[in-house]
Simulated assay, not measured.
Amino acid sequence: MKTEGGSDAAKRRAGERAAEEVEDGFVVGLGTGSTTAYAIRAIGRAVDDGLEVRGIPTSFQSRQLALEVGIPVTSLDAADGVDLAIDGADQVVDDPEAAGYGALIKGGGAAHTREKLVDSTADRFVVVADPSKLAPALERSVPVEVVPDAHTVVADRIRDLGGEPSLRDATRKDGPVVTDNGNLVLDCAFGSIDDPDALATVLSGLPGVLEHGLFVGLADATYVGRENGVDVRTY
């Protein structure tokens, strides 16, 4: 039997609870990942029942799922704005006393650049997660999307900052992971990150870095699915 932290039931409850926030006429940012997929499917069922929405996918994966379940898709260029973004996280700071309460690490699916663009544009950004993603401080490796020609230079700068970068390898082909934007990903281990905002600022300023997976001060709420309900954190 699966534990509560990683159960499909917990993910489903979080995703479906977030989908309840979608209103008629909304433009919705559609994130990437297994928990967000439940939200996308729930929105698709609502569309079948007559809800009129448009979705802005953040990855090829989320676009394909949106089309599969009947959600009309659009883009940031074509939409006047984003009413609501729903997205998952690889880790969430869950300590209200921590400086980075509500900060996220994203990018396990290498879609964090487009995710951050859509999530930061939205009027409201809701995170969906199961309990295994909660932590008192961020400590997972931070994905950093880099221009291919700059990956060795950026890796050196990451080491200067005390991080340990590794080029993300593809699992079903030889060579590295290539993002939807045609770039590479460095997974950068910093240990426990006490000040996510400061690290995010430094990473953003490195030449050759397109975007990183630290999402600080962007989330409005996190819906944490449990076996028997959903806990809501607001920031």
Rank of each mutant, 00 (worst) to 15 (best):
G15S: 06
G229Y: 10
D49Q: 15
T222Q: 02
Y223N: 00
I71S: 08
T74Q: 11
T113K: 03
G229F: 10
D195Q: 13
A189R: 13
V118N: 01
A155Q: 00
G31I: 01
G162V: 12
P136W: 06
D83H: 15
V82G: 02
M1F: 15
V92G: 02
T152I: 10
D160V: 14
G6I: 15
H212C: 05
D156P: 07
G15Q: 05
A10R: 05
A122R: 05
E211K: 09
G102A: 05
L138P: 04
G163L: 10
G5W: 06
F215L: 09
F60E: 14
I86G: 01
G33H: 03
E21N: 06
H212M: 10
Y235G: 13
H151G: 08
N181W: 10
A14S: 05
G191R: 04
V126F: 03
E164L: 14
S192Y: 11
L51S: 07
S59M: 05
V185M: 06
L117Y: 03
D80R: 14
S132W: 01
A129S: 12
D197P: 07
L199K: 11
E97F: 08
E68M: 10
Q61A: 15
T121P: 01
S192F: 08
G108I: 12
P176D: 04
G44A: 06
G70E: 01
D220L: 00
D123N: 14
T171V: 14
D119S: 03
P131N: 07
K11C: 02
A39E: 02
L138N: 03
K173E: 15
R13F: 07
A219K: 08
G102S: 09
L218E: 08
V118Y: 00
A219H: 03
G191V: 10
S120W: 04
D180E: 10
L65A: 01
P96L: 11
E23Y: 05
P136S: 04
G108S: 12
R54T: 12
D195C: 11
T32N: 04
L161M: 13
D80W: 13
R12V: 11
T234W: 12
L214A: 04
V144D: 00
C188T: 15
A150V: 09
A78F: 08
T35A: 02
P57V: 06
R172H: 14
G213V: 01
T32V: 11
E97N: 13
T36V: 13
G217L: 09
A99H: 09
V177H: 03
R17C: 13
R157M: 07
A110L: 10
G205K: 04
D24K: 11
I56N: 00
A39M: 09
D49W: 11
A122L: 00
A137K: 13
V22S: 03
R54C: 12
I158G: 00
Q64V: 14
T234N: 07
C188H: 11
A19H: 05
A129F: 09
T32S: 07
